[in-house]
Amino acid sequence: MSDGNHKFAFFLGCIAPNRYPGVESAAIRTGKKLGIDLVPLKGASCCPAPGAFGSIDLNVWYAMAARNLVLAEQMGTDIALICNGCYKSIWEVNHKLKHNNELRDSVNEVLKEVDMEYKGTINVYHLAELYCNDDVCGLDRLRDSVNTPLTGVKVACHYGCHLLKPRKDREFVGETIGDTEHPTWFEKLVEALGAEAVEYRNKMQCCGAGGGVRGYDIAHALDITNEKLINMTDAGAEAIVDTCPFCQLQFDRGQFEIKDKFGVEWNLPVLHFCEMLGLAQGMTPVELGLDLHQTSCKSFLDKLNTRGWWSKNVPPDSDIDIVGGQ
């Protein structure tokens, strides 16, 4: 367990700041209690979206991601981020450029035109990975930061794809986080917050949104999402927790769309791990922007409330609408 302080350039991405600002806010605020100092990366853009950009031209994807990397290189700080899609772009392009001189040269040729040069001087981390890492934070420190444990709720962890896969390209240390078939580190993170993590069938399945499929064939994407929702609820899950705002969008807005397109209603709250961590550290639903979620988080919050969580975190005279949902 680390008790030090670590500064990172916080790569925001798009969906967190522009759709779930509570995730951005929670990451920064909860980080302060964990020695993870997140300084938003100035001038960053879209990572860019690995599905959309990678599909059109991998070279432009490399160059655009490299521009973001150079911003952090200029800051002289490693990057931390909160989105699996961003991880694929920023981590993977950093990795490729570090190991492939030919590719690096071709990218630098274009960056030169905008007075930039990729040097390969920084590393890229997902916050989830930092929470697990004893040298930065570690489970004990995470557990110690909790003042209002989320006891009594059953949560289904959605790992997502692009943080972990393809495994052969990733460089996680140790068996646990590198396992892409039956990993358990996310469950351990959730349990550190006091919640109960449930195992469900085909846990590692994709949310359905990636690769541009959400935009290309929304029904197809939602059908995958729906299968995950079936497996999660079969296992008794009362909420979904994710590490990726894009997956979160697919589950959150997706339930709305599933109801519209398929006539199937789930009402399963969807939270980013940072949001859940925020709740466990005593942030209120409003401070976390949970009311911005399209699928209401009320059932989840009510579950916590029956265990006295509510009175502690939300003042009785509060008139704030925490129901959310649209």
Partner: peptide, 8 residues
């Protein structure tokens, strides 16, 4: 265009 790029 139906690959979700999940890399499984």
């Amino acid at each position: 265009w139906l690959c979700t790029t999940c890399y499984t």
